[in-house]
Amino acid sequence: MKRIIADVGRCSGCRLCEMVCSFSKEDAFAPSTSMITVIKEDKFGLDLPIVCWHCNPCNVIENCPQEALERNKEGRILVKEEKCVGCKECLEACVIGAIKLHPEKNIPQICDQCGGRPLCVQKCPTKALRYIETEEQEPRLPYQVFKETLRRWGISA
């Protein structure tokens, strides 16, 4: 399926993706309501956007006690809001930590890829985000990516 893929070498950590995401969903700017989140390690100058990979199989779907998550025909994971009780199990279950709860609605926010035309990808100033077809069913772990990057730069950490 098509997935949003982030390039650690290109990401400047500006978080514009978080801004455009939250605004498109909520008409207000707030990282807390964005479905994409840039993790940052200032100490090493590293930045990486984290967003649902729509893994298949998905650890979060399997671990949801309320069975509040399902996969649609495009392969995207959706939250059934009426079933979710805000128990936060999903926060721990996601292997890359891509899920946060909406601060008011208290339900997990999972990237819907803007229905196939992700705005974050369109607006990324450094083209660090791409929306492309990949058969990789699981994403690479963020801190693994950071470690590899540092190794490439010749930094031991």
Binding site: S12, G13, C14, D47
Partner: peptide, 8 residues
């Protein structure tokens, strides 16, 4: 690599 201020 490059870095940016917030939303820049």
């Amino acid at each position: 690599k490059n870095r940016a201020c917030f939303s820049c």
